[in-house]
Computed example of a mutant assay.
Amino acid sequence: MSNARHRLSVVAGLLAGLLALALFGWFVGVEQVAATVAELDPVPFALGFVAVVGAVGSQFLALTVLLGVRPSLGGALAYLRGVYGRQLLPVGNVAGPVLIAYSMRSATGIRTDRALPATIIAQAATFLGSTVVALAGSTVLVAGGRTGLLPLAAMFGVATAGWLALLAAFVGDVDVDRIAHGLAAAINRTLGRLSRVVATKTSREAIQRGLGEFDEARRLIREDPRRVVLAAALSVLGWALLCLPAVTTSAALGTPVALAVAFVAVPVSDFLNLLPVPGGIGGVEVVLAAGFVTLGGIDLAAAAVIAFCVRLCTYWFVLLLGGTATTVLSTRAGMAGS
């Protein structure tokens, strides 16, 4: 992609996200939201930023475990720089590992062919962490009488079981290639007849290319599955911490959100980061607020404020950390080259 097209893509993504935010603010009522923000207690709200620092730290530690390296300041700065690129550019979480791997290579000397498989597994562990946290939250809500959420809890349970089964298959040296080709062929023969895109994505050649790209990641899993288990545990911890700003913000507002509600609403909203919009701007806030209203029975204006404040902690604050890390590394590189 040319530089001009790349810049246009970034601008278009940002404008789309900001438009979604503007429409949401117009729907809720900007004056009402502003008045609610003025009521925030700054002390419990500030605890959300502390929780996010712990969450980012857990995710970084998960990656160092997979890389088999000791955590260091340089590595942390490189990781934050990669996260900064992933959050800022309209690539979605799927392409995020590439940016993080490149950043880790250029700052720490770790080869890309070693960093990329680890970052891919770290991203997969992050998805598992969000699913496990959402499963825990939905299970608590169902146990508390919200039986209508049973299908949602079951969906998270199936996703978690599927991820663990895939890990077990890699560790047990199951012929994953054969299974993948079989499933793809079945989809190609059914849904592929209705959609040309599905047919192309599930062709034997496309599946073979995809499996080839993950060969190194699969080798890493087979060689030391304990690393993957520890990384997954750190990712679960990270996601639990990422949900805390919803609780601290709601406490600051005087409109409590139960931890179980946060455990469902925050991970579900993050699924929009799969879309190529910078940080899921706009859509994530809408889904968060809807989750607080639907699951927690929160007033819409209060839910909107909580959603914006949660994103201030989990997106804009992380963006600030990543931008600072990028500046520090650029300054170091400039001083070293002079």
Rank of each mutant, 00 (worst) to 15 (best):
G109F: 09
I110E: 00
T112C: 02
D113Q: 13
D113S: 14
R114H: 13
A115K: 00
A115F: 00
L116H: 00
L116D: 00
A118Y: 04
A118R: 03
A118L: 11
A118S: 15
A124Y: 03
A124K: 00
A124M: 11
A125F: 06
A125D: 13
F127A: 12
L128E: 02
L128N: 00
G129K: 01
V132P: 01
V133A: 10
A134I: 06
A136C: 12
G137L: 03
T139D: 07
L141Q: 00
A143Q: 13
A143P: 04
G145H: 09
T147V: 11
G148D: 14
L150A: 15
L150K: 07
A153Y: 03
M155E: 06
M155P: 01
M155W: 09
A159S: 14
W163H: 07
W163P: 00
A165D: 04
L166W: 13
A168S: 08
A168C: 02
A169R: 10
A169L: 13
V171D: 02
V171I: 14
V171K: 04
D173H: 13
V174A: 15
V174M: 11
V174R: 15
D175G: 05
D175C: 06
D175N: 15
V176P: 07
D177L: 05
D177N: 13
D177F: 05
R178S: 14
I179Q: 08
I179M: 11
A180W: 04
A180I: 07
H181I: 06
G182H: 03
L183K: 05
A184N: 02
A185I: 07
I187C: 03
I187W: 03
N188D: 12
N188Q: 15
R189M: 09
L191N: 02
R193I: 02
L194Y: 12
S195W: 06
V197K: 12
V198H: 06
T200P: 02
S203F: 10
R204N: 09
A206K: 01
